[in-house]
Design a protein around this nucleic acid. Structure first.
Length: 656
RNA sequence: GCCUACGUAGCUCAGUCGGUAGAGCACUUCCUUGGUAAGGAAGAGGUCACCGGUUCAAAUCCGGUCGUAGGCUCCA
């Protein structure tokens, strides 16, 4: 057999007989790599380790701890799980089993449902199948052969998938012993390469994600290249749960839900209300500077208005049902837009008045389906950080960009850096159904938005089919502690509704013209934003935002009077303070304040009373020694007014 | 809305085979006046989510309703 030259990433060349496999190359390099390698790249194409190499080529070998290798491992473990399920439950029909971030799932059609015991059984079976070190072999077949193969196996879902594939394409299958799955690959070459995996949870999932289809059973799992990596991953999941806003919200007494009030209707407790107030304060300041005017509108409105706006058409199912008032349908408002349009229309407008920016922190009600509710992130009563900007076409780009820059300004204040700006566009199929049927206006406004972002040097991704029904939008996507994706803020173009409401302003030439409207909510809703902030800060709020800023802790009852005076002085200086007068020892009082995540603790004993000082202890910093109260107030006031994020100047310096 | 699991004191949780409930923390009172993450004692606190069924007897078994969780679908 002739030899071939295989070039490795370090430019070294290995000469091996033609027909050698990447695994054999790894075997030659060393036993460690031979064990750890899971997939190979030959001339920039990912291939299985047992693919024969017949020509001179370049070769990269990936271990399971690389991005590419991990993905292969995940995918192969999904197959291993399907094999185990099929052996344990012969009646099962397999469907799809893709990889996701740090995990995989596989959807099964089976009469019986999977319990935790089943999960444990499946995991044990997988261990056996992995240890058996089965060979995994790739095969190329025609569409017709594939259909026959899977039809004979009774795998009707696979047949359905193949029927949707272009018949000219070659189909590949992967077989391990008696289990064959349709798959593009690549996969690990032997099941023995799969070692450190865990099945995590089960759930229902619609076939092809369509709720009119049958509900299948999904099993989620994960796999890693090493025991440590798996352990770390599971540890991280547990740590994330500690940051969950639902848990912290309860512990820090920020908000609560009550069965007798209703699902998705939060009660804001005093501590949570402080945070809302601080946020609103920030929004009001920022918007006043940016030329917004605040308005207020009622919670109830006649149905006719929502017919006009198109909301009843598009969102009737997620509005609370109408109530009959004097024979007319009234609705609780699901958003503020039509009301603001009415304010715009309440008096004649000139081009000199434009743009007009109306803001409102109004409470809206949306009937979210029960299964959608999620702590504060998805609720039925919500207070929006809402505003509508009415502007001319010439002003549009500047206004839109200003709004985007307002997000960035806010995100800087909160230290939010993990987010994606998503330009949500229409799709042609939705025109006249999901979207207002104005093909040219869609393209035009989408281009304006794109240009505004480009001119502002703002990074974004484009996603077709995600627009609002009346125009394109920018959504800011973030992730909750447990990895759920949410839209935190939104900035939308509305080229249609102002027309429906016959909104007009008079141009210089005396002609009437319909303005464009920008809907924007940089802080989204108070509920979601605070839910997000709780997780973002892990409950360790910066001083300006934290419900209780200072805990005054007397060492003994002897100094209660002095401690009371300190507490009053702080209160007079507009600092939120809590005086602990309990008969506990100082250690217990400190512990209590730590658990409540109070940033600043003042230890007040006889020494302090004699010296007329306070001893300062800060979270994450410890004892900072004595200082005059006036000095402390000055420092804290600066920290609050500048909305400093870090808990200490030291920590702040370290991150810069 | 759909699939699955769960619901016991304010919180976190135990409660075996069906015999009407328990711990720790928190709370109240008393003792202790203690210097940087829990001093001690006593007391009080529950229609076991709700409604119905089976049973001599239900927190426990069965059905329904409500709520929560993990997903799916949806999101102006």
């Amino acid at each position: 057999m002739p030899d071939i030259n295989i070039t490795l990433p370090d430019s070294s060349v290995k000469t091996m007989p033609a027909g050698s496999t990447p695994q054999q190359v790894a075997d030659q390099i060393g036993p460690g790599l031979a064990r750890a390698v899971v997939v190979a790249r030959v001339d920039s194409k990912l291939v299985d380790l047992n693919t024969p190499l017949n020509y001179d080529c370049s070769l990269e070998l990936f271990k399971g701890d690389s991005t590419v290798g991990h993905d292969t491992l995940l995918h192969s473990t999904a197959h291993l799980m399907a094999q185990a399920v099929k052996e344990l439950y012969p009646d099962v029909k397999i469907t799809i089993g893709p990889t996701i971030e740090n995990g995989f799932y596989y959807d099964f059609d089976l009469e019986q449902t999977f319990s935790d015991d089943d999960l444990a059984r499946i995991e044990l079976k997988m261990k056996d199948l992995a240890k058996a070190d089965q060979e995994i072999n790739r095969e190329e077949i025609s569409t017709q052969e594939a259909i026959e193969l899977f039809r004979d196996l009774g795998e009707t879902y696979k047949v359905e998938i193949i029927e949707d594939i272009d018949p000219k394409e070659t189909i590949t299958t992967y077989t391990q012993t008696n289990f064959t799955d349709l798959c593009r690959g690549p996969h690990v070459s032997r099941t023995g390469k799969i070692k450190y995996f865990k099945l995590l949870s089960t759930s229902g999932a619609y076939w092809r994600g369509d709720e009119s289809n049958k509900m299948l059973q999904r099993i989620y799992g994960t796999v890693f290249a090493s025991k440590e990596a798996l352990k770390t991953h599971i540890h991280n999941l547990e740590e994330a749960k500690k940051r969950d806003h639902r848990k912290l919200g309860k512990e820090l007494e920020l908000f609560t839900f009550d069965d007798e009030i209703g699902p998705g209707l939060p009660l804001w407790l005093p501590h949570g209300t402080v945070i809302i107030d601080e946020l609103e304060q920030l929004a009001k300041e920022t918007e006043r500077r940016a030329g917004y005017q605040q308005v207020r509108t009622p919670h109830l409105t006649k149905g006719k208005l929502y017919e006009k706006s198109g909301h009843l058409d598009h969102y009737r199912d997620s509005m609370y049902p109408a109530m009959d008032v004097d024979g007319l349908d009234y609705y609780v408002k699901p958003m503020n837009c039509p009301h603001h349009h009415k304010i715009f229309a309440s008096s004649p407008r000139s081009y000199r008045d434009m743009p007009i920016r109306l803001s409102e922190y109004g409470t809206c009600y949306r009937y979210e389906k029960s299964g959608q509710l999620f702590g504060l992130m998805r609720v039925r009563s919500l207070q929006m950080n809402d505003a509508h900007i009415y502007c001319t076409r010439e002003q549009f780009k500047d206004e839109f960009l200003d709004v985007c820059q307002m997000y960035i300004y806010y995100f800087k204040i909160f230290g939010i850096d993990k987010y994606t700006m998503r330009l949500s566009l229409h799709d042609k199929e939705g025109l006249g159904k999901k979207y207002i049927n104005e093909p040219e206006l869609w393209l035009k406004t989408e281009q304006w938005v794109r240009e505004a972002l480009q001119e502002g040097n703002i990074d974004f991704v484009e996603v077709p089919g995600e627009a609002a029904f009346y125009g394109p939008k920018i959504d800011v996507q973030v992730w909750s502690a447990i990895g759920k994706e949410f839209t935190l803020a939104t900035n939308q173009v509305d080229f249609a509704v102002p027309e429906k409401f016959n909104l007009q302003y008079k141009k210089e030439d005396g002609q009437n013209k319909t303005p464009l409207c920008i809907h924007r909510a940089p802080l989204g809703t108070h509920e979601r934003f605070i839910g997000f902030l709780i997780e973002h800060f892990g409950g360790n709020f910066p001083l300006w935002l934290t419900p209780i800023q200072v805990a005054v802790l007397p060492v003994s009852d002897k100094v209660l009077d002095y401690a009371g005076k300190i507490s009053h002085t702080l209160q007079d200086a507009n600092i939120r303070v809590k005086l602990n007068t309990r008969a506990d020892k100082i250690g217990a009082k400190i512990r209590q304040a730590e658990l409540e995540k109070i940033n600043v603790m003042l230890i007040i004993g006889e020494k302090e009373e004699v010296n007329a000082t306070v001893s300062v202890r800060r979270r994450f910093e410890g004892d900072l020694g004595q200082m005059a109260l006036s000095e402390l107030i000055a420092d804290l006031t600066t920290e609050i007014n500048t909305r400093r994020i870090a808990h200490s100047e030291k920590a702040e310096a370290a991150t810069e």
